[in-house]
Design a binder for these strands. Structure first.
Lengths: 351, 351
DNA sequence: CCTGAAAATGGAAACGTTTCCAGTTTAACC
DNA sequence: GGTTAAACTGGAAACGTTTCCATTTTCAGG
């Protein structure tokens, strides 16, 4: 195994095997229309030279790169990291590479990355846009021409090219039903004043949760004023200050539903600082089942959905599109949310 | 802005501007050796046609792809996610895309991804190999020819090509000093039996921590038998079972130092299940400052280093190499580890 | 052995750039 | 204005594949 100075090309293989370049290509790829002799010689020559095809040249010719892009606000956010991880696993098994970019929910950056993906001719895109109202983003995506799969966002039908009748493929999570289940559970325990701590309603997950939260109050025939929605930025410190103010009020909520890691952490800290015991003084439900929720004392009851399933399903949907074998039926997936009961909820203290 | 059916090529721009292809390329790229008239006409034509250069063709010609690969065991692991995120941010600012791949510490997969990166001619690679002894991995990396930056792993000098005198560029974290500081702190509080819970010593961070841990015992002139190293797989459940056994022993450790999220969580659960109070019955130090450590009650004292700095520094090192402007001095970075004091440590209970 | 179709093959034309080279225009200087 | 160097330009050759097309070879069936 000698050190190869400059890599062997298909031409070298052809010369070594004593056949034409065309034949080498056919032998190595299709396998169709090639005699046993040529196949053998080519394989031997390729092996001898340590030939590895150049994907760039191949891509230029075939107009397919074997790469897909993944656009999320922040791969370091656990809620995205697992999705990215699972999607990458599935795509890799299909022989595709994944390029990832963080957008920090910045529309300009989103546009720039979509353009970069397009210039590089990526075969497809997985994307969770930072805002559902960003028409430019949707237009850019549509203009790219590559198949797109949406991650848990609302997609405007109207923006599709006219000939397309199908909505964009998407993987959605049933946050509405999840929030409704959680709220119903708390109401059933006797709570009448519940606060939902969630980031802005700019995006689908927040909107759906709020809708489910309100729906539970409506169907229980309870004073809807008890359903308090606190919009929060995703910063832990802000959440903590906000939670402090919330829990110090005269008629404070007796239960809270808090999103993810940062907001939940802020709320828990606030409760601890105020000396509120969980669940005696305050019931808590986490949205998203993180290590924090599972290990906290007491363990936190949580809404759980499978991030891995989201990533896997998205990759699967994209692969269907890429292979053209898109049995039109399953253009979108709706994944369930479960309520994992632990020790952080109980009846409200009598007052 | 009409819908463009098939994208405009440089040839279209040339025709529209009434100049040659070569001139268009010069006008758009170099800006050197092009008259004002040509520059203007070309810019106008490109704008009018919505021309966007095809990176594939460009890459084929220039042998540079503007993409770098990032190879880690698992992007969903918070310890890697932030590194990846920060590195991507820096590389994006430099106009590079990042393709990421998870190896699950599987040598075969590592080899496959390195080969894939090479076939796609990625400009460089950031990598945290799953094992420091995997000679094949190092050889493959070296053979690729692209610049490589190592993430917190020991790199064998001997494997370098003979003409290279510099070691591989790498970003390292001073886990040894961190572990020594933490251990010294516990010893100072009076602890004499301390357990270090860490994943295997196959990789640099584990090895360094163990070394620092032992060094602290050695320099304190204390019975070294009290320094107990528990090698753990990175699975929370296993860690919990293991921690349970450890803490139920006759002469159990009075303090533990536990890595990351999963192992720490397992240990905390075990302590909770046994009714051990922290820090009265058991002192705990977390290795890696996670949300869990910060928000736990009581808050957990933790060893902290900046994952963002690791990612940023790695990207910086790689960029230096890519630009050839690698002031040879800073071929590697060693980042510090701090001990963040919280409420989880105290003197051991008298016995 | 002949015929025709099917299979296999070599050569060359793409794919869309950048860059080299030779030639032509401009500029500068006396 | 003439000479020379510098700046600019067009044409064509890469880069390394795949795929088309026209030949040549193989093979089955009479």
């Amino acid at each position: 195994m000698t050190e190869i100075v400059s890599r062997a090309t298909i031409r070298d293989v052809a010369r070594t095997a004593g056949v034409s370049v065309g034949s080498v290509s056919r032998a190595l790829n299709g396998g169709k229309n090639v005699s046993a002799r040529v196949a053998r010689d080519v394989a031997a020559a390729a092996e001898k030279l340590g030939y590895q095809p150049d994907f760039l040249a191949r891509s230029l010719r075939t107009r397919t790169t074997g790469m897909v892009g993944c656009l999320v606000s922040d791969v370091a956010n656990p809620l995205y990291a697992s999705i990215v991880q699972a999607a990458e696993a599935r795509l890799r098994d299909a022989g595709l590479l994944m390029v990832v970019a963080n957008t920090a929910n910045d529309p300009a950056r989103e546009r720039a990355m979509v353009a970069a993906f397009r210039s590089r001719r990526l075969d497809g895109i997985l994307v969770a846009p930072g805002s559902d109202e960003n028409d430019r983003a949707w237009r850019d995506l549509a203009a790219g021409g590559a198949p797109v799969v949406i991650l848990d966002r609302d997609v405007p039908h109207l923006e599709r090219p006219p000939e397309e009748t199908q909505p964009w493929p998407a993987v959605l999570v049933d946050h509405r039903e999840g929030a409704r289940t959680a709220t119903r559970y708390l109401i059933g325990l006797g709570h009448r004043r519940i606060a939902l701590l969630t980031p802005g309603a700019r995006m689908r997950p927040g909107r759906e949760r709020i809708a489910g939260f309100r729906a539970a109050f409506a169907e229980a025939d309870i004073d809807p004023a008890g359903a308090e929605v606190c919009l929060q930025e995703s910063s832990m410190d802000f959440a903590q200050g906000d939670a402090l103010a919330l829990l110090q009020r005269e008629r404070r909520p007796t239960a809270i539903i808090a999103l993810g890691t940062r907001i939940l952490a802020g709320a828990l800290r606030a409760a601890r600082d105020l000396g509120l015991a969980i669940p005696a003084d305050l019931s808590v439900i986490a949205v998203g089942d993180t290590d924090l929720a599972a290990v906290h004392s007491p363990a936190i009851t949580a809404l759980r959905w499978s991030l891995e399933d989201v990533g896997r399903a998205a990759a699967e949907l994209l692969l269907q599109r890429l292979r053209g074998t898109g049995g039109e039926g399953q253009a979108r997936a709706l994944l369930p949310v479960d309520l994992v009961l632990r020790d952080s909820c109980g009846p409200p203290a009598s007052h």
